[in-house]
Computed example of a mutant assay.
Amino acid sequence: MSATTGDWYYNVTTGEVTKGKVAHALDRMGPYPDEASARRALEIAAERNAAADAEDED
């Protein structure tokens, strides 16, 4: 997916959401399909971690 088709990123250092790979790779989470999803990056990561932890417990 190219930056023109919806690659949104969350910058963990600044808390900013950008379209395209603006921040250094170690500072960004993504890509996300849209801006709203990128703004929820930390929530999405927490949900995925909780699901993985639950699987590990089984």
Results as ranks from 00 to 15, higher is better:
Ala25Ser: 12
Met29Ala: 04
Gly6Trp: 09
Pro33Trp: 01
Glu55Phe: 03
Thr18Phe: 01
Pro33Phe: 02
Ala46Phe: 01
Asp27Phe: 06
Glu55Arg: 14
Ile44His: 11
Glu43Trp: 08
Pro33His: 02
Thr14Glu: 04
Met29Gly: 03
Ala36Cys: 01
Asp53Val: 04
Pro33Arg: 11
Thr14Leu: 07
Gly30Lys: 07
Val22Cys: 04
Ala25Val: 09
Thr13Asn: 13
Asp56Met: 10
Ala46Arg: 13
Tyr10Trp: 04
Thr5Lys: 14
Gly6Lys: 07
Asn49Asp: 12
Ala23Ile: 02
Glu57Trp: 10
Glu47Asn: 05
Asp56Arg: 15
Asp7Glu: 15
Lys19Cys: 03
Asp34Trp: 01
Glu57Ala: 15
Arg48Val: 01
Arg40Asp: 08
Thr14Ala: 05
Arg40Trp: 00
Ser37His: 11
Glu16Cys: 03
Ala23Ser: 15
Asp58Arg: 14
Tyr10Lys: 06
Trp8Gln: 10
Tyr9Arg: 10
Ala50Arg: 13
Ala23Asp: 14
Glu16Leu: 10
Arg40Thr: 00
Gly30Trp: 02
Leu42Met: 14
Thr4Gly: 11
His24Ala: 11
Val22Glu: 11
Ala51Arg: 15
Ala3Asp: 11
Glu35Leu: 11
Glu35Pro: 03
Asp56Glu: 12
Ala25Ile: 08
Asn11Leu: 06
Glu43Arg: 12
Ala38Ile: 09
Gly15Cys: 06
Ala50Gln: 07
Ala23Phe: 03
Glu47Gln: 13
Met29Ser: 08
Ala41Trp: 05
Thr5Arg: 13
Ala25Thr: 10
Arg39Gly: 10
Asp7Pro: 00
Gly15Val: 05
Ser37Phe: 02
Ser37Asp: 08
Ala51Asn: 12
Ala25Asp: 13
Val22Asp: 08
Ala36Gln: 10
Glu16Asp: 13
Asp7Val: 00
Asn11Cys: 12
Glu57Gln: 14
Lys19His: 04
Glu57Met: 13
Lys21Ser: 03
Ala3Arg: 13
Lys19Gln: 15
Thr5Phe: 09
Ser2Thr: 08
Ala41Gly: 09
Ala41Phe: 05
Ala46Trp: 00
Ala54Ile: 05
Gly30Met: 02
Lys21Thr: 07
Asp7Cys: 07
Asp58Cys: 04
Val17Met: 05
Ala45Asp: 04
Arg39Asp: 00
Val17Phe: 06
Asn11His: 12
Gly30His: 06
Glu57Leu: 15
Ile44Glu: 11
Asn11Ile: 06
Leu42Pro: 07
Arg40His: 11
Arg39Ile: 00
Met29Tyr: 09
Val22Tyr: 03
Arg28Pro: 08
Ala41His: 10
Gly6Ile: 02
Thr13Glu: 11
Ala52Ser: 04
Thr5Ser: 12
Gly30Val: 02
Arg28Gly: 03
Asp53Tyr: 03
His24Pro: 15
Ala54Lys: 14
Ala38Ser: 04
Met1Ala: 10
Trp8Val: 04
Trp8Met: 07
Asp34Phe: 01
Thr5His: 12
Ala25Phe: 08
Leu26Phe: 08
